[in-house]
Design a protein around this nucleic acid. Structure first.
Lengths: 335, 335
DNA sequence: CTGAAAGCGCTTACAG
DNA sequence: CTGAAAGCGCTTACAG
């Protein structure tokens, strides 16, 4: 029912090979022939079937991105970066969101079955390394973002250094008793941020009691409860470092509900510098990540590796963060 | 290089037709034959090439979604809805974001070239109707969300009624001079919200001077400037209705910077009820949209229409909104 | 410059 | 229950 290359060939009075040639602008074609073909294409409103085309060229001109579909502007920026990189390379970006459960791996269809030439996998801890390897074996160029695996190219943010800077800043402000609200445990971000805190405290011979480590999950609500528990401690912390801004915002909310002033009674800092950070009361001191650059660089690399059959490339890039000082840490005065 | 159905057939000592049969679980196959085939599949780690498969079945088992990739949690919810619907129907969701410019229509590749069986187009004003029609002619099931076109199924939220309820609420609180900060002009959301405001004011014989209509664009920053101009008016408004929450949040920020109290000196309300609305100071009174349901219902409908060749189905569904009263309107007291 | 033909990797009537 | 073959809609050496 859809019009095919045969219809066009017939109408233009040429063979399908010729039609294909003018469509692909490759070989020389007589100008007059080209004109007739283009005319037939227009008249019939012909659209090439990409499936058939890709089947023979072994290239889909699509780059896939698997990204956690949590409500986080941070990922938006990353998507924009990937998109721009794809655009420059004349690729179309398709995005698959994470599955709801770790057991459900259907989203892997995207790259298991040859729909994309390259993949950018963002913080997809559930994806097994064997799956990735298999995709790579099939010639798909894959890069990891915010996640590492031996022998697979990856782009990460220097969470460790970012956390260190943040904690040093807190110490400089005179805070000594610092608590941590964790993100999901399985992510390296969380682990690295915690490590930054831990190391700086150790170096300053400061304690980090277990009771100061509260379980969170990065999402809305968890920072709220964690903060409540922290504030009910016999000796509450002077400052709270939440593993991301969302939880920090919740923590501030809870502090206020408990009648405490932030940062006077308790300082709160986050991580990521999502747009929300500007709107909390007081605005959040946090750490900005180069989300856009992360996406852009990762995609550019992945695209560049398409067709590279050497499976032994190892590549790791770590982008640095930036401390964003607002009011919630106590460094500046309120308006 | 990748292992094909031929490799499996050879290893199992059967024809490729038989391999295909066991893979597709369709026809009867001798249990022992099936076992041998499955064993070969496993041993060779065979993955069916979806491109080839789709080429013959004329079905890709993919549903495409074109969504504005603006930093808006509202769309996230919608994506979740579409995703769940797709999941139930055993479909994979792929998302394409909007192009940066109206001229760039490469994202249409997704459905022009036969990669998806169905499409959900969200607020994609730049997409020409002819393009959509063409896609439909090629047998792709398409539905529109937050957007209408004669003869194309669509799912929209009742922005008009939502805006009416919001404005009635404001009037009930005693506000009379109400200003509006617009969203992007080309969206129906914005037009409908404005119409709701306009009609309610008219019915109450209240004026809406031109100076009370400020141009915004839904994005961060525009509400800020718009509010500044409103506050500098000889007779500033008593209440400001921003076309979405982001701009309302900015407006609040600006009011505070001008030393004004919200809602005592000026009330501010938004639209959408994104998560940010809970974190502004004071929390935002706004209108919640059934984003998830919108996505779920739209996708379910689109999926149900796959294979339906009757091009004359006309379908329109309007989902209703809900007023969310917080503090920024002045209806309740602060904590 | 152009046509005929092989082939990309599958599915599916059609026979047997 | 299974094989041989046609066909999905293209691209691309290979000849000429």
């Amino acid at each position: 029912m859809a019009v095919t290359i045969f219809d066009v060939a017939e109408r233009a009075g040429v063979s399908i090979g010729t039609v294909s040639r003018v469509l692909n602008q490759r070989d020389r074609v007589h100008p007059e022939t080209r004109r007739r073909v283009m005319e037939a294409v227009k008249e019939l409103d012909y659209q090439r079937n990409a499936l058939a085309s890709s089947l023979v060229t072994q290239r889909t001109q699509m780059i896939g991105m698997v990204v956690p579909m949590v409500n986080d502007p941070f990922f938006f920026e990353m998507v924009r970066g990937v998109e721009d990189a794809a655009y420059s390379a004349n690729y179309t970006l398709i995005i698959a969101s994470h599955p709801r459960s770790a057991k459900d791996r259907r989203y892997l269809d995207l790259f298991k079955r040859g729909y994309v030439d390259a993949m950018v996998l963002v913080a997809s801890a559930e994806i097994q390394e064997t799956e990735i390897r298999r995709a790579m074996d099939q010639g798909i160029s894959v890069v990891l973002v915010q996640q590492e695996h031996e022998g697979i190219p990856s782009f990460v943010v220097d969470n460790y250094a970012g956390a260190r800077a943040l904690v040093e800043h807190l110490l400089g402000l005179g805070h000594r008793r610092i608590a941590y609200i964790t993100g999901s445990d399985y992510t390296i971000d969380n682990a690295e941020r915690f490590r930054g805190l831990y190391d700086v405290l150790s170096e300053h011979h400061l304690a980090l009691p277990d009771s100061y480590i509260m379980q969170g999950d990065y999402h809305h609500g968890s920072g709220y409860e964690a903060m409540q528990k922290l504030l009910n401690l016999p000796e509450p912390p002077e400052a709270v470092f939440a593993a991301n801004d969302q939880m920090a915002a919740d923590a501030i909310q809870m502090a206020r509900e408990c009648g405490l002033r932030v940062p006077e009674d308790v300082a709160v800092v986050g991580f990521d510098d999502v747009s929300l950070a500007r709107y909390t009361n007081p605005p959040l001191t946090t750490v900005a990540q180069p989300a856009y650059e992360l996406g852009y660089e990762a995609a550019t690399y992945a695209l560049g590796q398409i067709g590279n059959t050497d499976p032994f490339v190892s590549f790791q890039k770590k982008l640095s963060t930036q401390l964003v000082i607002r009011l919630s840490c106590g460094a500046k005065k309120r308006l």
